[in-house]
């Protein structure tokens, strides 16, 4: 074990162990010497601890601890003390072996340990302490159960939230599909009506968005449109703000005449939607209050009804039967 040849450190396993040993014992060997100041401080601390008069409670605790320690240790456990004990030596001469009991050999009920001492310091009735302990234990158990139950709840909640987010995403997607299909149909109708493609209606989507009153849009995807318009308005307002630098776009400067206004691009019509958007919409609120799953279901049904389109198959069937679609729900399409 004494081999500490550095050259053979990376050799066999045995030598590796030696190396480990050396590392562990090293710090002990070279313990830093206490400096004078450290020593002085330590002494000061120690004498302070010694000199401090302990509080009654501390004393009682010390006493009890010393007593418990003494009471719990058998007089036979310390071999050194036991070897010196003349009483034990005498007993050994009589044939006693530690661990055995006294008395006749047939006596099986003989004690090997002294009776414990329990101090009673109050007037609590018989069984009160046990009752207290039992109650405490019950409370702990109950608390444990509650925590566990909450843990379960949490997992459930997270799962639900995730599911909601997912459903919300799908609702959005279904809304977009519905809006697009609706727009396409309207376009188709317009084309059918005009017979040709009107140049002015080249960008129908854009004009439709900006002109069509929100309330006339199907509630199923009205939320989508509204959100988009709100977003657009925000962008516009920010743009306006940046353009006008120091003024709010709605600021009415009395020094400006109509020409100034036109020059600054302040067109009143631009703010028409703000009012529209800010208007109360109980129908939409009602729809939004529904579960995402329900909203999704409504959208899916609408698409099937109107366009023979299955949201899950991502396919427009040619007829009402929708032959080949496994069913109404997402699970059917798994």
């Amino acid at each position: 074990m004494a081999t500490q040849d550095p050259s053979s450190r990376n050799g066999s396993e045995d030598q590796e162990e030696d190396y480990m040993n050396m590392v562990i014992t090293e710090p002990d060997k070279h313990r830093e010497k206490e400096t004078y100041t450290q020593r002085r401080l330590r002494k000061e601390r120690e004498s302070e601890a010694r000199g401090r008069v302990k509080s009654k409670a501390e004393r009682a605790a010390d006493e009890a601890a010393a007593r418990e320690a003494a009471l719990s240790a058998s007089l036979f456990t310390d071999p050194e003390a036991a070897a010196k004990n003349k009483g034990l030596a005498m007993m050994a001469k009589m044939g006693f072996k530690p661990g055995a009991a006294l008395g006749s050999e047939g006596n099986t009920s003989a004690m090997t340990e002294p009776i414990g001492i329990s101090m009673k310091d109050d007037r609590g009735g018989v069984g009160l302490d046990a009752e207290k302990k039992r109650k405490f234990r019950e409370a702990v158990e109950k608390e444990g159960k509650r925590i566990k139950a909450e843990e379960g709840d949490y997992r459930e909640r997270v799962r639900r939230e995730r599911e909601e987010v997912r459903l919300d995403g799908m609702v959005g997607a279904a809304m977009r599909v519905a809006e697009r299909m609706d727009a396409e149909r309207e376009e188709q109708r317009a084309v059918d009506a005009l017979g040709c493609v009107d140049e002015s209606a080249e960008d129908p989507k854009k004009s439709a968005v900006s002109t069509k009153p929100l309330k006339s849009i199907n509630v199923l995807w009205r939320g989508l449109v509204r959100k988009r318009e709100e977003k657009e308005r925000d962008q516009r307002m920010r743009y306006d703000l940046q353009q006008s630098l120091s003024r709010l776009p709605t600021y009415d400067d009395t020094n400006e005449d109509a020409d100034d206004k036109r020059a600054l691009g302040k067109v009143p019509t631009q703010h028409r939607f703000i009012e529209d958007i800010e208007e109360e919409d109980p129908e939409l609120d009602e729809f939004n209050a529904l579960d995402p799953a329900e909203r999704l279901q409504k959208l899916v049904e609408y698409l099937r009804e109107e366009y023979n389109y299955c949201f899950w198959c991502k396919f427009s069937y040619p007829d009402k039967e929708m032959d080949g679609c496994p069913g109404l729900t997402e699970e059917d399409h798994d």
Partner: peptide, 22 residues
Amino acid sequence: DDLVHFDLMDPPAPETLMRALE
């Protein structure tokens, strides 16, 4: 003389005898 094997109905703990002898 043999206190260890003296047939008592309830022999005391050995430590008690040890203390007494000591």
